[in-house]
Design a protein around this nucleic acid. Structure first.
Length: 819
DNA sequence: GCAGCCTTGTTTTTT
DNA sequence: ACAAGGCTGC
């Protein structure tokens, strides 16, 4: 078949075709679950190329690396079949795109090109350090909460100054101080965090006309998938890129927005037409994935939401079997029964293992399932790609690499300074830190000058010098072309504090402005991954990549050398009996690095580190692994399986306790409903929704009640299997007990309160109206109590700046104030 | 300086 | 239940 504009549209339905044909101007594709969205957009890209649009001018943004890789493959496949190459199409995630743009325009934001990307663990470390520097207690300012606030600010493009200015209460004011210090620490380490990849990209595009123009020309046709899950920073990036050529296609489904907690703004998609006037809107409502029964239940559920664009999903598929609602005594019985049913389908119907999946709300539920699968000898894979990179020994090796790539990364250096033990204990580290702080140099640099440090033991001094020397050698081998950032005076921290002219823009950040001023002589170069391929009939629009440092022996060779020369392998071997997995994990890391070398010949150390840092849980999943797939509901987005089981369909899990509370926003409950909707609509034919009457949560067995979402789906979709022994007393709180649902829920919750003495709060002794004292927020009055055993929540109206807060009683350390 | 024990806390979900 | 961080004893 000839490769023509017409041929690539073959087989599309009318609305799909309409979407694929609209390549100029803004386009919104509202694609219902299972409506053939991926098919449509890959064809759309092929259609563009068939119409003569250079592949490298097309940018497709996906949600995960895995989705990016798959889309690339599908496009390649479409174009190769027609004798053309589509390799030049850039497919990236917002974060990987951000990493490349920030790398390319690093000097515009005052960073060396070798900057490090900090992961969540590094971020937590930095926040703790910032709290310490400001003498704020981590008890009153939980690092996770502070980090969340900082992340929220960054997603809204708020600089520390702007955030502090807008801060209302006591807590926020202090978060503002922490944010300021946190940013300074990032800069000292020449590092960025995940949010910075978006924020800095947005700022580069917004504030640097040259960069904006260049990037607009490079990315003339933009396609953004999962648009419902974009946050403000991503929105700004999209707008800045598209504002000139206006060829932007957003695809998504408001009903599948499940990342509100991460700053995703549903309005980005709901109000697309206001942001992009004259936008064409295409609705894909026909579902090709699921049976009528599954679709009916899902549609009924999602219809309860108010924040949505109404869509009527329909299908020509068969009615299919009813959805199984499985009730069991506990999570062990639940897991065993689900595995039994999977096995039955495998053995009797010949359904392959990789056609089945089990979803859960929280990762902690996976353990019991794993046990049951293992016991039944059922092969399974679990979407936890990041877990491997979270292991201590793996992080240690990567920390060495990060210091080699960026010697200013003192967070990584601090991590491995004494790993394996080389006689540098707390005292020596403190001395070194003080010395480095005084001189404004990195920890590694301080190590090199160890003999100048007063009070440092000779033994420690020798160890320091030796370590610094090792890093010198490694750097020379790995970064031949790289200038030593240590000697690069233009990036001195003092630059940050320079006084900038007044500006009343609330988003204005003086530090950013300062670095902009230095960006005149910037000459863009193309990161190699983004460089367009050489195509015979058209020249790439930008010069080829500048020579990257060639790494002898690849990442693998470097890694092997480090592991050997640092003494890591000796240390791992030494206590092999205690922890035999350690050497194995390091070996595995080296194997994966070797794969990277093969796939990315000439790949730089930065590109390797970038890839492992930006990896996501689903990225490692294999399509044809011949294994049952286990993952969270969040990770399941975008996937489909003939057989799906969703476990833990209980109030408190789905919807999660965080979202049920009386005082929490209805928006959160809607997001939980969307999450359930996503889970259900992953199923093509068979679906099990299960709940257990008792479930062990954090070591405590808790009585549960069925998810309230069961009430929202029609009974005729269900077949109920009840494996609980009908016992005396409470009876079973099933999904059907609508009339007495609320009353029973209360009873069950009250009965579920574990045995505790009066001094541990369970809610019984707290009532609305009572005066209480909180160690952090001070005096307040209880507005509401929601009894739920260990999860009992109280809403307290605090006096002073703290305002109204919902607290988990068990953790809140509330104190009654008797009047 | 370091290993092992004990206390403490634990807001899902993730790039 | 489980992990991380602090403390104690060598």
């Amino acid at each position: 078949m000839a490769f023509t504009a017409e041929s690539v549209l073959q087989g599309l339905t009318a609305p799909q075709r309409q979407a694929a044909e609209t390549i100029d101007g803004p386009l919104l594709v509202l694609a219902g679950a299972g409506s053939g969205k991926t098919r449509t957009i890959t064809r759309r890209v092929a259609y563009m190329i068939a119409n003569g649009i250079p592949a490298w001018n097309i940018l497709a943004i996906t949600f995960t690396n895995k989705a990016a890789k798959e889309m690339k493959e599908r496009i390649d496949h479409l174009l190769q079949g027609a004798g053309r190459m589509g390799r030049g199409v850039i497919v990236a995630t917002f974060h990987s795109l951000g990493a490349r743009i920030v790398r390319e325009y690093a000097d515009v934001v005052g960073l060396p090109k070798t900057f490090t990307i900090f992961d969540s663990a590094d971020q937590a470390r930095l926040v703790k350090q910032a709290l310490k520097d400001l003498s704020l207690s981590p008890d009153n300012f939980q690092p996770a909460a502070v980090l969340h606030a900082i992340s929220g600010a960054k997603n809204k493009l708020q600089s520390p100054a702007a955030f502090t200015q807008a801060a209302g209460g006591f807590f926020e004011k202090n978060v503002g101080r922490v944010y300021t210090r946190y940013e300074a620490l990032l800069r000292e380490n020449k590092a960025v965090d995940f949010d910075d990849l978006l924020l800095k990209t947005a700022l580069i595009l917004r504030d640097n006309a040259d960069a904006r123009a260049a990037l607009q020309e490079r990315h003339q046709y933009i396609l953004i998938d999962e648009y419902q899950d974009t946050n403000h920073a991503q929105f700004v990036i999209a707008h800045m890129l598209a504002m000139n050529h206006k060829n932007i296609c957003a695809t998504g489904d408001p009903d599948q927005s499940i990342y509100g907690w991460r700053g995703a703004n549903l309005n980005n998609i709901l109000e697309f037409e206001q942001f992009f006037p004259n936008a064409k809107v295409v609705l894909l409502e026909q579902n090709y994935r699921s049976t009528k029964v599954i679709l009916q239940a899902a549609s009924a559920l999602i219809a309860r939401n108010t924040k949505r664009k109404k869509k009527d999903l329909w299908t020509e598929n068969e009615a299919g079997p009813r959805i199984v609602i499985l009730q069991t005594n506990d999570e062990h019985q639940e897991a065993a029964e689900i595995v039994r049913r999977l096995k039955e389908h495998h053995d009797k119907q010949g359904l392959a293992w990789d056609k089945m999946a089990i979803f859960y709300r929280v990762n902690s539920l996976s353990r019991v399932l794993e046990d049951a699968l293992m016991k039944a000898a059922v092969p399974y894979q679990i979407a936890r790609g990041t877990e491997f990179y979270g292991r201590k020994e793996v992080k240690d090796v990567l920390a060495y690499l990060r210091v080699i790539a960026n010697p200013d990364d003192s967070v990584s250096f601090g991590r491995i300074m004494n790993v394996p033990p080389r006689g540098l204990g707390d005292t020596s580290v403190t001395r070194l830190e003080a010395f480095a702080g005084e001189r404004g140099i990195s920890m590694l640099a301080a190590c090199g000058l160890a003999d100048q440090i007063e009070g440092l033991l000779p033994r420690a001094s020798v160890a320091c010098k030796k370590l610094a020397e090792l890093f010198g050698q490694w750097r020379a081998a790995a970064m031949p072309a790289a200038p030593t950032v240590l000697e690069d005076g233009s990036l001195a921290p003092s630059q940050r504090d320079a006084v900038a002219p007044a500006n009343d823009d609330p988003l204005y950040d003086p530090a950013f402005d300062q670095v902009l001023a230095d960006s005149e002589e910037y000459v863009p170069d193309m990161p190699d991954e983004m460089a367009p391929p050489t195509v015979a009939d058209a020249a790439p629009p930008v010069p080829a990549a500048t020579a990257a440092p060639v790494l002898e022996g690849g990442i693998r060779g470097l890694m092997e050398r480090i592991v050997r020369e640092s003494g890591l392998d000796a240390a791992a071997k030494k206590d092999e009996d205690a922890d035999h997995e350690r050497s194995a994990n390091i070996a595995e890391l080296i194997t994966v690095a070797a794969e990277f070398d093969t796939q990315n010949p000439g790949g730089t150390l930065q590109s390797y580190l970038e890839q492992v840092t930006l990896i996501s849980d689903v990225d490692k999943l294999q399509d044809s692994g011949g294994a049952v797939t286990l993952m969270t509901l969040h990770a399941a987005k975008g996937l489909e399986f003939p057989f799906v089981a969703v476990v833990g369909m209980e109030d408190g899990l789905i919807p999660h306790a965080r979202a049920i509370g009386f005082a929490t926003s209805p928006d959160e409950l809607e997001e939980e409903r969307r999450l359930a909707f996503v889970g259900i609509t992953r199923a093509m034919k068979h679906l099990i929704l299960s709940y257990a009457r008792y479930r062990m949560i954090r070591g405590q067995t808790e009585r549960t009640i069925a998810s309230q979402f069961f009430q929202e789906m029609p009974d005729e979709c269900f077949e109920e299997i009840d494996l609980t022994a009908q016992e005396e007393g409470l009876g079973s709180v099933g999904y059907r007990d609508e009339a007495s649902y609320a009353r029973r829920a209360q009873q069950t919750r009250a009965a579920a309160v574990p045995e505790r003495t009066a001094d541990t709060a369970t809610g019984a002794e707290y009532r609305a109206g009572m005066l209480v004292r909180h160690p952090q927020f001070g005096m307040g009055r209880i507005a509401d109590v929601t009894p739920a055993g260990a999860m009992t929540r109280v809403v307290v109206q605090f006096q002073g700046g703290a305002g109204r807060k919902t607290l988990i009683l068990q953790y809140a350390r509330l104190e009654r104030v008797d009047t």
